[in-house]
């Protein structure tokens, strides 16, 4: 039996257990609809243009957030990683900012940025910054000094070393950071949509389904779709990393 088949069996077993729980009298049916019901709803929703527009809105916002986070975190990481003085100086600030949960900033972002997509994108960027930043710094720490010295010997300047030696050798770590950041961005995005009342997006769909008709099957459809997007993002970026980083 191949690993793939075993994985499918694992998922099937989980679904069977859930189905059993969902149908048992122990748990109220409206709280945990069985997977068969959720699957039916999933098919209905996947053909509904409204649901698809929610999905597209969330995915698009996540992609924008990742792009912005990369644009901020990679250059900052390169500076912090290659100039120790700057790193020591900013360390306290960073260590204080990092643990502030992005969801705690929801109230602030709402009053400052309003209810538009800026709020959720800003908060997702805030959450996605850290993994990329720390992986970039870490990558520069791991940089082989021999490599730097070699290129220095051949007359490469400081900036040249940064772009031709440091960046390429940091790339695998940076890509790992981006992969972690993508998952985080998605989770924060859906959470903010869910709690801050955006007008569109997967999280909004989940919130609507819950607060209006109390349709738990739709809540779970939204959750499952979010999970699938997460897996796809994660695997896609992992594949990119393997392809680009052949060394």
């Amino acid at each position: 039996m191949r690993a793939f088949t075993r994985g499918l069996i694992g998922i099937a077993g989980f679904l069977a257990l859930w189905e059993l729980l969902g149908r048992s009298p122990l748990i109220p049916a409206h709280a945990l609809p069985p997977p068969s019901a959720v699957f039916g709803e999933l098919v209905t929703q996947l053909t509904s243009p409204e649901f698809l527009s929610h999905v597209v809105a969330t995915v698009l916002a996540v992609l924008i957030a990742i792009a912005i986070a990369i644009a901020i975190a990679v250059p900052s990481g390169l500076v912090l990683g290659s100039v120790p003085a700057v790193r020591h100086a900013t360390r306290a600030v960073i260590e204080f900012l990092r643990p502030i949960p992005s969801v705690a900033l929801i109230p602030l972002a709402l009053v400052v940025l309003g209810f538009g997509p800026e709020t959720k994108i800003t908060l997702a960027v805030y959450a996605a910054l850290w993994p990329i930043l720390f992986n970039t710094i870490y990558a520069l720490d791991e940089l082989d000094p021999l490599l730097v010295e070699t290129s220095r010997v051949f007359g490469t300047g400081r900036v040249g070393v940064l772009f031709r030696v440091a960046l390429p050798s940091a790339l695998p770590f940076v890509l790992t950071g981006i992969r972690l950041a993508a998952t985080t961005a998605l989770i924060v995005m859906v959470s903010v949509e869910l709690m801050a009342g955006a007008q569109i997006g997967l999280g909004y769909f989940i919130m609507e389904a819950r607060s209006g008709p109390g349709r738990m099957d739709q809540v779970l459809v939204g959750t499952v779709v979010a999970g699938v997007i997460g897996v796809l993002l994660n695997n896609g970026l992992e594949r990119v990393r393997r392809r680009w980083v052949a060394w």
């Binding site: 998952t183 998605l186 859906v190 999970g227 699938v228 997460g230 897996v231």
Partner: peptide, 9 residues
């Protein structure tokens, strides 16, 4: 898959 599910959902 489970890890990718946003817990607030």
């Amino acid at each position: 898959f489970m890890r990718s599910i946003p817990p607030p959902a």
